[in-house]
Protein backbone atom coordinates (compact mmCIF):
# COMPACT_ATOMS: atom_id res chain seq x y z
CA UNK A 1 0.00 0.00 0.00
CA UNK A 2 1.22 3.44 -0.86
CA UNK A 3 1.68 5.99 1.89
CA UNK A 4 -0.95 8.29 0.38
CA UNK A 5 -3.61 5.66 0.61
CA UNK A 6 -2.70 4.86 4.22
CA UNK A 7 -3.17 8.53 5.07
CA UNK A 8 -6.48 8.66 3.27
CA UNK A 9 -7.92 5.55 4.83
CA UNK A 10 -6.86 6.81 8.24
CA UNK A 11 -8.67 10.08 7.57
CA UNK A 12 -11.84 8.19 6.61
CA UNK A 13 -11.58 6.15 9.79
CA UNK A 14 -11.12 9.21 11.98
CA UNK A 15 -14.03 10.98 10.30
CA UNK A 16 -16.28 7.93 10.76
CA UNK A 17 -15.19 7.71 14.39
CA UNK A 18 -15.96 11.39 14.97
CA UNK A 19 -19.38 11.05 13.32
CA UNK A 20 -20.22 8.02 15.44
CA UNK A 21 -18.95 9.75 18.58
CA UNK A 22 -21.16 12.77 17.86
CA UNK A 23 -24.19 10.49 17.52
CA UNK A 24 -23.18 8.82 20.78
CA UNK A 25 -22.76 12.12 22.64
CA UNK A 26 -25.49 14.33 21.18
CA UNK A 27 -28.36 11.84 21.38
CA UNK A 28 -29.75 11.29 24.89
CA UNK A 29 -29.34 7.49 24.78
CA UNK A 30 -30.01 6.70 28.40
CA UNK A 31 -32.41 8.15 30.96
CA UNK A 32 -30.76 10.14 33.76
CA UNK A 33 -29.56 7.57 36.25
CA UNK A 34 -31.33 7.38 39.60
CA UNK A 35 -29.60 4.35 41.14
CA UNK A 36 -26.12 3.00 41.81
CA UNK A 37 -26.94 0.02 39.59
CA UNK A 38 -27.84 2.28 36.67
CA UNK A 39 -24.55 4.18 37.20
CA UNK A 40 -22.67 0.89 36.68
CA UNK A 41 -24.84 -0.05 33.72
CA UNK A 42 -24.03 3.35 32.21
CA UNK A 43 -20.33 2.68 32.69
CA UNK A 44 -20.64 -0.68 30.93
CA UNK A 45 -22.68 0.95 28.19
CA UNK A 46 -20.07 3.64 27.48
CA UNK A 47 -17.16 1.19 27.78
CA UNK A 48 -18.84 -0.98 25.13
CA UNK A 49 -19.72 2.07 23.05
CA UNK A 50 -16.09 3.21 22.84
CA UNK A 51 -14.98 -0.22 21.58
CA UNK A 52 -17.88 -0.37 19.13
CA UNK A 53 -17.10 3.08 17.74
CA UNK A 54 -13.56 1.84 17.07
CA UNK A 55 -14.80 -1.24 15.22
CA UNK A 56 -17.35 0.84 13.31
CA UNK A 57 -14.66 3.33 12.25
CA UNK A 58 -12.42 0.56 10.88
CA UNK A 59 -15.25 -1.06 8.90
CA UNK A 60 -16.60 2.28 7.64
CA UNK A 61 -13.12 3.39 6.52
CA UNK A 62 -12.60 0.15 4.59
CA UNK A 63 -16.00 0.40 2.88
CA UNK A 64 -15.71 4.10 2.01
CA UNK A 65 -12.15 3.72 0.73
CA UNK A 66 -13.07 0.68 -1.40
CA UNK A 67 -16.17 2.30 -2.84
CA UNK A 68 -14.24 5.45 -3.77
CA UNK A 69 -11.05 3.82 -5.05
CA UNK A 70 -11.90 0.45 -6.50
CA UNK A 71 -14.94 1.43 -8.58
CA UNK A 72 -14.43 -0.08 -11.99
CA UNK A 73 -13.98 2.18 -15.04
CA UNK A 74 -16.69 1.89 -17.70
CA UNK A 75 -15.95 -0.87 -20.23
CA UNK A 76 -13.29 -2.35 -17.95
CA UNK A 77 -13.88 -6.10 -18.15
CA UNK A 78 -10.70 -7.16 -16.38
CA UNK A 79 -10.46 -9.02 -13.10
CA UNK A 80 -8.85 -7.94 -9.85
CA UNK A 81 -5.63 -9.45 -8.51
CA UNK A 82 -6.12 -13.12 -7.50
CA UNK A 83 -5.50 -12.71 -3.77
CA UNK A 84 -6.80 -15.82 -2.02
CA UNK A 85 -6.09 -14.85 1.55
CA UNK A 86 -3.46 -13.86 4.04
CA UNK A 87 -2.92 -16.04 7.09
CA UNK A 88 -1.41 -13.24 9.18
CA UNK A 89 -4.34 -10.90 8.55
CA UNK A 90 -6.83 -13.65 9.23
CA UNK A 91 -5.18 -14.39 12.58
CA UNK A 92 -5.22 -10.69 13.44
CA UNK A 93 -8.93 -10.23 12.76
CA UNK A 94 -9.73 -13.36 14.70
CA UNK A 95 -7.58 -12.43 17.69
CA UNK A 96 -8.38 -8.72 18.11
CA UNK A 97 -12.18 -9.12 18.24
CA UNK A 98 -11.69 -12.05 20.62
CA UNK A 99 -9.68 -9.82 22.94
CA UNK A 100 -12.20 -6.98 22.72
CA UNK A 101 -15.24 -9.14 23.51
CA UNK A 102 -13.32 -10.75 26.36
CA UNK A 103 -12.69 -7.30 27.81
CA UNK A 104 -16.40 -6.43 27.55
CA UNK A 105 -17.29 -9.79 29.12
CA UNK A 106 -14.99 -9.24 32.08
CA UNK A 107 -16.32 -5.73 32.76
CA UNK A 108 -19.90 -6.98 32.38
CA UNK A 109 -19.37 -9.91 34.72
CA UNK A 110 -17.92 -7.66 37.42
CA UNK A 111 -20.73 -5.11 37.04
CA UNK A 112 -23.31 -7.90 37.14
CA UNK A 113 -21.87 -9.32 40.35
CA UNK A 114 -21.95 -5.90 42.01
CA UNK A 115 -25.44 -5.09 40.74
CA UNK A 116 -26.72 -8.37 42.22
CA UNK A 117 -25.16 -7.63 45.61
CA UNK A 118 -27.61 -5.98 47.99
CA UNK A 119 -25.16 -5.78 50.89
CA UNK A 120 -25.68 -7.33 54.32
CA UNK A 121 -28.88 -5.64 55.36
CA UNK A 122 -31.09 -4.42 52.51
CA UNK A 123 -34.63 -3.20 52.78
CA UNK A 124 -36.83 -6.06 51.60
CA UNK A 125 -40.00 -5.26 49.69
CA UNK A 126 -42.24 -7.89 48.18
CA UNK A 127 -43.72 -7.05 44.78
CA UNK A 128 -46.76 -8.87 43.45
CA UNK A 129 -47.80 -8.49 39.82
CA UNK A 130 -51.10 -9.48 38.33
CA UNK A 131 -53.12 -8.47 35.28
CA UNK A 132 -52.74 -5.46 35.23
CA UNK A 133 -51.54 -3.99 38.52
CA UNK A 134 -48.62 -3.87 40.92
CA UNK A 135 -48.81 -4.37 44.68
CA UNK A 136 -45.98 -3.59 47.09
CA UNK A 137 -45.68 -5.15 50.56
CA UNK A 138 -43.41 -3.26 52.91
CA UNK A 139 -41.46 -4.82 55.79
CA UNK A 140 -42.37 -4.10 59.40
CA UNK A 141 -45.01 -5.16 61.86
CA UNK A 142 -47.74 -3.13 60.18
CA UNK A 143 -47.56 -5.13 56.96
CA UNK A 144 -48.29 -2.08 54.85
CA UNK A 145 -49.53 -2.94 51.37
CA UNK A 146 -49.88 -0.25 48.74
CA UNK A 147 -50.09 0.35 45.02
CA UNK A 148 -47.25 2.85 45.21
CA UNK A 149 -43.56 2.05 45.57
CA UNK A 150 -41.92 4.44 48.04
CA UNK A 151 -38.18 3.99 48.61
CA UNK A 152 -35.73 5.73 50.93
CA UNK A 153 -32.83 7.34 49.10
CA UNK A 154 -29.35 5.78 49.25
CA UNK A 155 -30.52 2.54 50.87
CA UNK A 156 -30.12 -0.79 49.04
CA UNK A 157 -33.47 -2.42 48.38
CA UNK A 158 -34.01 -6.06 47.56
CA UNK A 159 -37.26 -6.61 45.72
CA UNK A 160 -38.73 -10.10 45.61
CA UNK A 161 -41.05 -10.48 42.65
CA UNK A 162 -44.08 -12.74 42.39
CA UNK A 163 -46.81 -13.12 39.82
CA UNK A 164 -50.35 -14.29 40.35
CA UNK A 165 -51.21 -15.13 36.76
CA UNK A 166 -48.91 -14.69 33.74
CA UNK A 167 -45.38 -13.38 33.30
CA UNK A 168 -44.88 -9.67 33.95
CA UNK A 169 -41.67 -7.65 34.14
CA UNK A 170 -40.67 -4.94 36.58
CA UNK A 171 -38.71 -2.03 35.11
CA UNK A 172 -38.02 1.52 36.18
CA UNK A 173 -35.91 2.97 33.35
CA UNK A 174 -34.01 5.35 35.65
CA UNK A 175 -33.07 2.46 37.97
CA UNK A 176 -31.82 0.30 35.09
CA UNK A 177 -32.62 -3.00 36.76
CA UNK A 178 -35.29 -5.26 35.32
CA UNK A 179 -36.66 -8.69 36.10
CA UNK A 180 -39.62 -10.80 35.09
CA UNK A 181 -42.20 -11.68 37.70
CA UNK A 182 -42.84 -15.34 36.98
CA UNK A 183 -45.70 -17.45 38.30
CA UNK A 184 -44.41 -20.28 40.46
CA UNK A 185 -40.93 -18.92 41.13
CA UNK A 186 -39.52 -16.01 43.08
CA UNK A 187 -37.17 -13.60 41.36
CA UNK A 188 -35.17 -10.82 42.97
CA UNK A 189 -33.86 -7.42 42.01
CA UNK A 190 -31.45 -5.08 43.78
CA UNK A 191 -31.89 -1.30 43.55
CA UNK A 192 -30.07 1.43 45.43
CA UNK A 193 -31.87 4.69 44.61
CA UNK A 194 -29.60 7.73 44.56
CA UNK A 195 -31.85 10.53 43.38
CA UNK A 196 -35.07 11.75 44.97
CA UNK A 197 -37.98 12.12 42.62
CA UNK A 198 -40.96 10.46 41.00
CA UNK A 199 -40.65 7.56 38.55
CA UNK A 200 -42.82 4.85 37.11
CA UNK A 201 -42.77 1.07 37.15
CA UNK A 202 -43.36 -0.17 33.60
CA UNK A 203 -44.41 -3.72 32.79
CA UNK A 204 -42.21 -4.81 29.88
CA UNK A 205 -43.41 -8.37 29.31
CA UNK A 206 -46.55 -8.66 27.17
CA UNK A 207 -49.15 -9.79 29.70
CA UNK A 208 -52.46 -9.33 27.94
CA UNK A 209 -54.76 -6.52 26.84
CA UNK A 210 -53.92 -4.13 29.66
CA UNK A 211 -50.15 -4.55 29.26
CA UNK A 212 -49.57 -0.95 28.11
CA UNK A 213 -51.47 0.40 31.09
CA UNK A 214 -49.71 -1.72 33.70
CA UNK A 215 -47.85 1.06 35.48
CA UNK A 216 -47.26 2.02 39.10
CA UNK A 217 -45.93 5.23 40.65
CA UNK A 218 -42.51 5.22 42.34
CA UNK A 219 -41.23 7.85 44.74
CA UNK A 220 -37.72 8.12 46.14
CA UNK A 221 -37.73 10.11 49.38
CA UNK A 222 -35.65 10.80 52.49
CA UNK A 223 -35.53 8.04 55.11
CA UNK A 224 -37.68 10.11 57.49
CA UNK A 225 -40.32 10.69 54.86
CA UNK A 226 -40.30 6.99 54.03
CA UNK A 227 -40.95 6.11 57.64
CA UNK A 228 -43.69 8.70 57.82
CA UNK A 229 -45.30 7.25 54.71
CA UNK A 230 -45.34 3.80 56.25
CA UNK A 231 -46.74 5.14 59.52
CA UNK A 232 -49.46 7.07 57.72
CA UNK A 233 -50.38 4.09 55.62
CA UNK A 234 -50.44 1.89 58.71
CA UNK A 235 -52.61 4.38 60.61
CA UNK A 236 -54.96 5.51 57.90
CA UNK A 237 -54.59 2.79 55.40
CA UNK A 238 -54.35 -0.41 57.38
CA UNK A 239 -58.05 -0.92 58.09
CA UNK A 240 -58.54 0.01 54.48
CA UNK A 241 -57.12 -3.34 53.43
CA UNK A 242 -60.69 -4.50 53.31
CA UNK A 243 -62.24 -1.19 52.28
CA UNK A 244 -63.74 -1.08 48.82
CA UNK A 245 -61.27 1.55 47.73
CA UNK A 246 -58.26 -0.51 48.87
CA UNK A 247 -59.60 -3.61 47.16
CA UNK A 248 -60.10 -1.61 43.97
CA UNK A 249 -56.43 -0.56 44.08
CA UNK A 250 -54.80 -3.81 45.15
CA UNK A 251 -56.89 -6.02 42.88
CA UNK A 252 -55.80 -3.82 40.00
CA UNK A 253 -59.28 -2.84 38.78
CA UNK A 254 -57.95 0.59 37.77
CA UNK A 255 -55.51 -1.04 35.35
CA UNK A 256 -58.35 -1.58 32.90
CA UNK A 257 -61.49 0.23 34.07
CA UNK A 258 -62.18 3.93 34.28
CA UNK A 259 -63.70 4.93 37.64
CA UNK A 260 -63.77 8.56 38.70
CA UNK A 261 -63.66 8.09 42.52
CA UNK A 262 -60.42 6.09 42.10
CA UNK A 263 -59.05 8.65 39.61
CA UNK A 264 -58.64 5.90 37.04
CA UNK A 265 -59.18 6.59 33.35
CA UNK A 266 -58.03 3.31 31.78
CA UNK A 267 -59.88 2.20 28.68
CA UNK A 268 -59.07 -1.50 28.31
CA UNK A 269 -62.36 -2.58 29.84
CA UNK A 270 -65.73 -0.83 30.09
CA UNK A 271 -66.02 2.25 32.32
CA UNK A 272 -67.43 1.66 35.80
CA UNK A 273 -68.65 5.21 36.23
CA UNK A 274 -72.19 4.53 35.05
CA UNK A 275 -72.86 0.81 34.92
CA UNK A 276 -76.03 -0.34 33.20
CA UNK A 277 -77.31 -3.28 35.28
CA UNK A 278 -79.60 -4.49 32.48
CA UNK A 279 -82.66 -3.98 34.64
CA UNK A 280 -81.33 -6.02 37.58
CA UNK A 281 -80.24 -4.84 41.01
CA UNK A 282 -76.93 -3.04 40.53
CA UNK A 283 -75.05 -4.77 43.36
CA UNK A 284 -76.08 -8.23 42.20
CA UNK A 285 -75.10 -7.41 38.63
CA UNK A 286 -71.70 -6.06 39.70
CA UNK A 287 -70.93 -9.10 41.85
CA UNK A 288 -71.81 -11.44 38.99
CA UNK A 289 -69.62 -9.46 36.58
CA UNK A 290 -66.65 -9.64 38.97
CA UNK A 291 -66.99 -13.37 39.59
CA UNK A 292 -67.88 -14.32 36.02
CA UNK A 293 -66.78 -11.55 33.65
CA UNK A 294 -68.16 -13.39 30.61
CA UNK A 295 -71.73 -13.61 31.93
CA UNK A 296 -72.74 -10.25 30.43
CA UNK A 297 -70.44 -8.44 28.02
CA UNK A 298 -70.60 -4.69 27.60
CA UNK A 299 -71.12 -3.62 24.02
CA UNK A 300 -67.86 -3.31 22.10
CA UNK A 301 -65.87 -5.51 24.49
CA UNK A 302 -64.80 -9.14 24.10
CA UNK A 303 -65.00 -11.99 26.53
CA UNK A 304 -62.08 -13.93 28.04
CA UNK A 305 -60.13 -10.74 28.67
CA UNK A 306 -60.73 -10.07 32.36
CA UNK A 307 -59.37 -12.75 34.71
CA UNK A 308 -62.18 -14.90 36.08
CA UNK A 309 -60.38 -15.62 39.33
CA UNK A 310 -61.45 -12.63 41.45
CA UNK A 311 -64.37 -14.56 42.89
CA UNK A 312 -61.82 -16.91 44.45
CA UNK A 313 -58.86 -14.61 45.13
CA UNK A 314 -60.94 -11.99 47.01
CA UNK A 315 -62.68 -12.80 50.28
CA UNK A 316 -66.43 -12.41 50.66
CA UNK A 317 -65.97 -9.25 52.73
CA UNK A 318 -63.63 -7.79 50.13
CA UNK A 319 -66.11 -8.54 47.34
CA UNK A 320 -68.96 -6.93 49.28
CA UNK A 321 -66.83 -3.88 50.04
CA UNK A 322 -65.75 -3.59 46.41
CA UNK A 323 -69.33 -3.82 45.15
CA UNK A 324 -70.46 -1.23 47.68
CA UNK A 325 -67.60 1.09 46.65
CA UNK A 326 -68.63 0.76 43.00
CA UNK A 327 -72.32 1.29 43.79
CA UNK A 328 -71.54 4.41 45.84
CA UNK A 329 -69.36 5.82 43.10
CA UNK A 330 -71.94 5.63 40.31
CA UNK A 331 -72.50 8.93 38.55
CA UNK A 332 -75.80 10.50 39.58
CA UNK A 333 -76.29 7.94 42.33
CA UNK A 334 -77.02 10.60 44.96
Amino acid sequence: MRRGSIVRITIYGVLAGIAASLVAVLVPWLPTSASEEMDRIEFTFWFTTVICIGVFAVVAAAIVYSVLNFRVQPEDESDGPPIHGHTGLEIVWTAIPAVLVTAISVVSAIVLARNDDAGPNPLRISVTAQQFAWKFEYPGDDKVVSGELVLPVDKPVKLTLHSRDVIHAFWVPEFGQKSDAVPGIETTLVITPTRKGSYRVICTELCGLGHATMRAPVRVVEQAEYEKYLADEAAGGAPDESSGEAVFVTAGCGGCHAFAPARSDAQVGPSLDAVDPRGRPLDEFLLESIEDPNAVLAEGYQGDVMPNTYGKSLSEEQLDALVQYLVDGQKGSE
Binding site: L30, M38, R40, I41, T44, F45, T48, I51, C52, V55, F56, V101, I104, S105, V107, S108, A109, V111, L112, N115, A169, W171, P173, G176, Q177, K178, S179, T204, E205
Partner: peptide
Protein backbone atom coordinates in the same frame (compact mmCIF):
# COMPACT_ATOMS: atom_id res chain seq x y z
CA UNK B 1 -23.92 -6.91 15.28
CA UNK B 2 -22.58 -4.09 17.43
CA UNK B 3 -25.94 -3.55 19.13
CA UNK B 4 -25.85 -7.31 19.65
CA UNK B 5 -22.65 -6.90 21.65
CA UNK B 6 -24.51 -4.48 23.94
CA UNK B 7 -27.27 -7.03 24.39
CA UNK B 8 -24.85 -9.87 25.06
CA UNK B 9 -23.48 -7.91 28.02
CA UNK B 10 -25.77 -8.97 30.87
CA UNK B 11 -25.98 -5.64 32.76
CA UNK B 12 -26.82 -3.67 29.60
CA UNK B 13 -29.26 -6.35 28.48
CA UNK B 14 -31.05 -6.12 31.81
CA UNK B 15 -31.75 -2.44 31.08
CA UNK B 16 -32.48 -2.89 27.38
CA UNK B 17 -34.42 -6.13 27.12
CA UNK B 18 -38.12 -6.00 26.16
CA UNK B 19 -37.76 -2.39 25.02
Amino acid sequence: GLSGIFLASVPIDIAASDT
